[in-house]
Amino acid sequence: MTLNVGAHVSISGSKTSGDDESPPSDGVDNAVWRQRNVGGNCGQIFTHSPQVWQSPDVEDDEAEAFRAESDTHDIGPWVIHTSYLVNLCTPKEGLREKSRESMQEEVEAAHKLGIPYVNVHLGAHTGAGVEQGLENAAAVIDSLDVPDDVTILIESDAGSGTKLGGDFEHLATVLELADTDLDICLDTAHAFAAGYDLSTPEGVADTLAELDDVVGLEHLKYVHLNDSKHECGTNKDEHAHIGDGHIGDEGFEAFLNHEAIRDVPLALETPTEDGRSYEWNIQHVKELRDEE
């Protein structure tokens, strides 16, 4: 299988000055150029600032350009990451409704852009309890009108506080409760923080075997590939360069070459620091992946 690896890239601003191509207008099609610029061939975007309640506002010409550029340069599959404010598990009706409205806009934007996946965190139950929180999440999802060509991915979480999704059982429960067809996105840093040890070949094999047993690997459609600045089981979510964190090169080499992962697209959310950014991390992933 061809290695599908890319990064979470911005849709804002214009191309870097000095490039030999003409800068595009400010729009979502910028993401394709940015992905190519870091050496990626798939990836993730926000359709707007993730810190605010805001509509995607994708113009028809932008969507057409995004689809055409992605096809021309064979970049995909893409995934949209929803706003950080979305909380599917909350017992607060007002917040659940805002989350539902935001999710509906994101799945519609994905359809418009030809993006097959919309990624979302379950959120926090904030005292309602795990069972009620998961039921709330499934109910919000089932209230959506999801286009046939779009799939919602539930992302694994680091599991701090009352946030849900740190336990694979949480993901499985939502998939079981919801009538909507759902799949999952595994974040390596989140899973590690939640107590799934990915730092050794044995740990990788055990974690993926448990994911298969609890959720089913057929539901794993995307991976957020991130190292962790904190140790396993700390519930602390802070990403590191691939190989530089507590997962390390040994863990990532085993993970990237595991048969369950080899054809799953990978999106990096690694930091820009120490003179390195996405381009370095993508190249390092390629070095850790064995050739077919």
Results as ranks from 00 to 15, higher is better:
residue 242 I to Q: 04
residue 250 E to I: 07
residue 165 G to Q: 00
residue 111 H to A: 13
residue 134 L to K: 04
residue 135 E to F: 12
residue 101 E to S: 01
residue 71 D to K: 14
residue 182 L to G: 13
residue 265 P to H: 06
residue 47 T to E: 11
residue 119 N to Y: 08
residue 211 L to D: 02
residue 112 K to M: 09
residue 224 H to Y: 12
residue 240 A to P: 00
residue 183 D to E: 07
residue 126 T to F: 05
residue 90 T to Q: 02
residue 240 A to R: 09
residue 198 L to C: 10
residue 275 G to A: 08
residue 219 H to S: 02
residue 89 C to K: 01
residue 78 W to S: 14
residue 48 H to L: 03
residue 56 P to G: 06
residue 204 V to W: 02
residue 50 P to A: 09
residue 39 G to I: 15
residue 92 K to A: 01
residue 130 V to N: 05
residue 154 I to Q: 00
residue 117 Y to H: 14
residue 27 G to D: 11
residue 145 D to Q: 06
residue 212 D to M: 08
residue 210 E to T: 15
residue 126 T to R: 10
residue 202 E to N: 12
residue 104 Q to F: 07
residue 255 F to D: 04
residue 225 L to M: 05
residue 202 E to Y: 06
residue 172 A to R: 15
residue 16 T to P: 00
residue 264 V to H: 12
residue 224 H to I: 12
residue 147 P to I: 14
residue 139 A to T: 10
residue 83 S to W: 02
residue 138 A to N: 10
residue 48 H to C: 01
residue 34 R to I: 05
residue 121 H to C: 00
residue 261 I to T: 05
residue 61 D to Q: 10
residue 188 T to R: 11
residue 137 A to W: 11
residue 125 H to M: 08
residue 211 L to F: 14
residue 209 A to Y: 11
residue 219 H to C: 00
residue 115 I to D: 06
residue 96 R to H: 04
residue 252 F to K: 11
residue 215 V to C: 03
residue 174 V to A: 05
residue 186 L to C: 12
residue 47 T to Y: 12
residue 242 I to E: 02
residue 35 Q to W: 09
residue 150 V to W: 07
residue 3 L to S: 11
residue 83 S to E: 00
residue 73 H to N: 04
residue 124 A to K: 05
residue 213 D to F: 03
residue 106 E to T: 07
residue 111 H to G: 03
residue 281 N to K: 03
residue 13 G to V: 11
residue 249 D to K: 10
residue 151 T to M: 15
residue 191 A to Q: 07
residue 113 L to P: 08
residue 5 V to Q: 14
residue 119 N to E: 11
residue 265 P to F: 07
residue 143 S to F: 12
residue 126 T to H: 06
residue 183 D to G: 06
residue 101 E to N: 03
residue 19 D to H: 11
residue 187 D to H: 06
residue 219 H to Q: 00
residue 9 V to C: 05
residue 76 G to W: 13
residue 5 V to Y: 13
residue 133 G to Q: 10
residue 68 A to I: 03
residue 232 C to R: 09
residue 27 G to N: 10
residue 107 V to L: 13
residue 160 S to I: 04
residue 11 I to K: 08
residue 41 N to F: 08
residue 249 D to I: 09
residue 92 K to L: 07
residue 177 L to P: 04
residue 182 L to W: 15
residue 259 E to K: 15
residue 277 S to R: 09
residue 164 L to V: 00
residue 83 S to N: 00
residue 39 G to P: 14
residue 242 I to Y: 03
residue 80 I to Y: 07
residue 284 H to Y: 04
residue 235 N to K: 15
residue 39 G to W: 15
residue 246 H to R: 14
residue 138 A to G: 08
residue 89 C to I: 06
residue 7 A to Q: 10
residue 284 H to A: 00
residue 127 G to M: 12
residue 202 E to P: 02
residue 12 S to K: 11
residue 285 V to Y: 10
residue 153 L to G: 05
residue 110 A to M: 07
residue 225 L to S: 03
residue 54 Q to N: 04
residue 127 G to D: 12
residue 171 L to M: 15
residue 53 W to V: 06
residue 250 E to G: 08
residue 137 A to Y: 10
residue 139 A to W: 01
residue 48 H to P: 01
residue 113 L to N: 08
residue 103 M to T: 01
residue 199 S to F: 03
residue 135 E to K: 15
residue 86 V to C: 05
residue 83 S to L: 03
residue 181 D to P: 11
residue 139 A to P: 02
residue 34 R to N: 06
residue 212 D to Q: 10
residue 287 E to W: 15
residue 31 A to H: 04
residue 180 T to Y: 10
residue 101 E to F: 01
residue 283 Q to A: 12
residue 48 H to W: 01
